[in-house]
Computed example of a mutant assay.
Amino acid sequence: MVKICIDRVASQCAKLKSRYIKIENDKTVSEKSGRLSFLLKHKPNEIMTPYDFIYKIVTTLLLNANAFIYPRFDKYP
């Protein structure tokens, strides 16, 4: 029953559009553009869509009460 609830919450969260926003001096700065923003919106890694990526993060967070993302950039594009 718990996993069904987590699935429902994660599937709804995965529909959200991710944004990269930087906060400076307690003021929200507008959305940043660049490589990180592009990767979050279109292709977070080679094998996942943004939907799959967010779904997996939310599921891990709710199951384990802990989740983290480690960005790894290749030297050569």
Rank of each mutant, 00 (worst) to 15 (best):
N45A: 03
P77L: 11
V2E: 06
M1P: 11
N66Q: 12
M48L: 09
C13N: 01
P50K: 02
L61F: 08
Y70S: 02
D26H: 03
D7N: 13
Q12E: 11
I23C: 06
N64I: 01
D52L: 14
I57F: 08
I47P: 05
I4N: 09
S18M: 15
D74K: 12
N64V: 04
I69F: 01
K43F: 06
K17P: 13
Y76I: 15
F53V: 10
F38M: 02
V2G: 03
K27E: 13
I57A: 03
I6M: 04
A67Q: 08
S37T: 13
A67D: 04
L63P: 00
D52H: 09
G34V: 03
D26R: 11
F38A: 06
L40Y: 10
H42R: 04
C5R: 15
H42E: 10
I23M: 13
Y76H: 10
T49K: 14
P77A: 12
F53G: 13
A10R: 02
P50S: 04
K3V: 05
N64M: 05
F68T: 14
L40E: 04
I47C: 14
S18I: 06
A10G: 03
I54C: 00
N66L: 04
L16G: 12
D74M: 11
D26Y: 04
L16H: 07
D7L: 06
T60N: 11
E24H: 07
Y20T: 11
I21R: 14
E24P: 00
K41N: 06
I21N: 11
